[in-house]
Simulated assay, not measured.
Amino acid sequence: MKRLRAFVCVILSCCLGTAYPAHKSAPTNHRHAKVKLTHEAGLDRSGKPRKGEASYYGRNFYKKKMADGTHMNPQSNAAASKTLPLGTKARVTNLDNGNSEVVEIRDRGPYVKDRIVDVSPKTADKLGIRKDGTAPVEVKPIEVPQPDGTVKPDTAAR
């Protein structure tokens, strides 16, 4: 009888040992899926222009991975937005001097109050915001990826 109990305990521990890790990973994946869905729900796919403050990526962000998985290239037209979907193309216009550039949203941020976009240093130079570090801008989406895989064009922003 003792041997039978020992045998059953060994079998149960083996079964539980393989079942427990599978059970443990399920809530983690579910949690990430929930966070992603929540974040997706907060995205602005309307194509409406927004006004706010722009800043640019500092040196400490060069070569770091962005939200889309690519590395930040200071010579690119990459930009970060908290509300526009990744892959959105938008025209950013400096409201102080009228300079504008087309950017592609490839990252999340900026995480500073009242800032609506971070641009690459190259774009910041073209917009004329490197000297002061920030500027009031208007961001007009040109192409906005939709959840179904289509792209919503906005010909008025071009």
Rank of each mutant, 00 (worst) to 15 (best):
23 H>E: 14
99 N>C: 13
41 A>T: 06
104 E>P: 01
24 K>L: 15
11 I>S: 07
122 K>Y: 03
8 V>K: 07
17 G>V: 08
90 A>H: 00
46 S>V: 09
27 P>W: 12
4 L>G: 12
85 P>Q: 13
27 P>T: 15
121 P>T: 00
122 K>T: 06
117 V>P: 04
50 R>I: 14
95 L>V: 07
116 I>S: 04
114 D>R: 08
9 C>L: 05
64 K>P: 05
89 K>P: 11
113 K>Q: 15
34 K>Y: 09
16 L>W: 13
58 G>Y: 05
12 L>V: 04
75 Q>H: 15
85 P>L: 12
16 L>Q: 12
5 R>F: 12
5 R>G: 13
34 K>F: 09
71 H>S: 15
27 P>R: 13
43 L>W: 04
22 A>T: 13
22 A>F: 15
18 T>F: 15
65 K>H: 10
24 K>T: 14
6 A>P: 08
95 L>D: 07
106 R>Q: 00
77 N>F: 03
42 G>C: 10
53 E>P: 00
28 T>M: 14
44 D>I: 07
21 P>K: 14
76 S>T: 06
86 L>E: 05
48 K>S: 13
22 A>Q: 14
42 G>Q: 06
103 V>C: 06
18 T>E: 13
85 P>I: 12
34 K>W: 09
77 N>W: 01
71 H>L: 12
95 L>S: 02
116 I>C: 03
71 H>R: 11
35 V>K: 01
90 A>Y: 04
112 V>F: 05
79 A>G: 03
107 D>W: 00
12 L>R: 07
40 E>A: 10
36 K>R: 12
106 R>E: 06
60 N>V: 07
12 L>A: 08
104 E>L: 02
29 N>Y: 15
23 H>F: 15
115 R>Q: 05
12 L>T: 08
107 D>H: 03
36 K>H: 11
30 H>Y: 11
26 A>K: 13
26 A>Q: 13
53 E>C: 06
93 T>Y: 00
77 N>L: 09
66 M>E: 00
35 V>S: 02
47 G>D: 10
101 E>D: 03
80 A>K: 02
112 V>H: 01
30 H>G: 11
91 R>G: 08
14 C>S: 10
92 V>R: 04
115 R>C: 02
105 I>R: 04
108 R>A: 14
81 S>W: 04
68 D>C: 08
30 H>P: 03
79 A>D: 00
12 L>G: 06
86 L>R: 01
9 C>M: 05
120 S>W: 03
78 A>N: 02
64 K>L: 08
121 P>S: 11
97 N>H: 07
61 F>D: 04
46 S>F: 02
89 K>A: 12
54 A>Y: 03
50 R>D: 10
79 A>L: 00
82 K>V: 02
86 L>Y: 04
71 H>P: 14
112 V>L: 08
93 T>A: 01
63 K>N: 09
52 G>S: 06
